[in-house]
């Protein structure tokens, strides 16, 4: 298996001197059955920063993201090669319990997916399954304030989470994610189903959340990446040996470098809107 010559020189991210690394991705390839979806990714995620994954559809951004909390385990046939470490622990070590990983690494999905329960229960459920023993009312309020939703829902906590608008539902999902006090929050295109105003609110929220959390966000919206992310990783897809397309990391750098002075031509083409 040949590595893509255009990717390797920059893919190794050694440009993060000012911050501790929480997640290391070392030579990771991801397969669905025999199909290779992602090839040879090296990527370090710095603590308390926002990292954006951008790139065309089918380049493996979401696939890689879902490895960081082992959500790919749910997909039959998904397999990871290489090494992903979280605070130095190999996430794919057979001894690692994925349920514990997901408590530390939370997730917000593309489509808002509140539980069909009350707003209060949406947040309390996660805390309860994780053995939270403190004041539940206080935790619910704190989480909803954290996701800038409290003022809108404080009088209707007993109502179903599904009764909220799309933007509110997504912020409820963010509140649910931060209620279990993870260290990393993965966001898989969290704004793709939201209107511009709800999107702005979520982006503001991401800015606040990075004080406490490390955030990795997959987005198709390059303006969004440039607004919220400290670092940006550009992925692209290419036809492999057998003709099937695989995704790989093209370039990973500070966001302003990716958008203003990328080192790779394909990055330049993508961020300026000239695809291919």
């Amino acid at each position: 298996m040949t590595t893509n010559p255009s990717t390797q020189p920059n893919a190794r991210s050694s440009m993060l001197p000012e911050s501790d690394v929480v997640i290391q991705t070392e030579n990771v390839s991801i397969y669905y059955g025999s199909f290779q979806a992602v090839r040879n990714v090296f990527l370090d995620i710095p603590k308390n920063r926002v990292v954006a994954f951008i790139g065309p559809s089918g380049c493996g951004k979401s696939t890689l993201l879902r490895c960081y909390n082992r959500l790919n385990d749910l997909i039959p046939g998904a397999r990871v090669e290489g090494k992903i470490t979280y605070q130095g622990v190999d996430l794919y070590d057979p001894k690692v319990d994925p349920v514990e990983v997901r408590r530390r690494v939370g997730m917000v999905f593309q489509k808002a997916n509140p539980f069909p329960k009350s707003i209060y229960e949406n947040i309390a459920f996660g805390a309860r399954v994780n053995g939270y023993k403190g004041d539940m009312d206080e935790l619910v309020e704190r989480s909803l304030r954290g996701s800038a939703l409290w003022d809108e829902v404080k009088d209707k906590l007993k109502q179903s989470g599904l009764s909220l608008s799309g933007g509110q539902q997504q912020r409820l999902c963010i509140a649910r994610a931060i209620a279990i006090e993870p260290e990393v929050i993965l966001m898989d295109e969290p704004c793709s189903a939201l209107d511009p105003i709800s999107t702005l609110r979520v982006e503001d929220l991401i800015h606040e959340l990075k004080q406490q959390f490390t955030i990795i966000i997959v987005t198709h919206n390059m303006q969004q990446a440039s607004r919220v992310a400290d670092y940006t990783a550009f992925f692209n897809a290419e036809a492999g040996d057998g003709g099937s397309r695989f995704g790989y990391l093209v370039e990973y750098d500070r966001t302003e470098n990716i958008f203003n002075s990328p080192k790779q031509q394909s990055t330049q083409d993508y961020v300026s809107g000239r695809f291919g």
Partner: peptide, 15 residues
């Protein structure tokens, strides 16, 4: 029940 909801439950650390 949508797959999203299962993933959400698993994603917050539920068994």
């Amino acid at each position: 029940i949508p797959r999203d909801v299962r993933q959400a439950a698993v994603g917050i650390g539920a068994t």
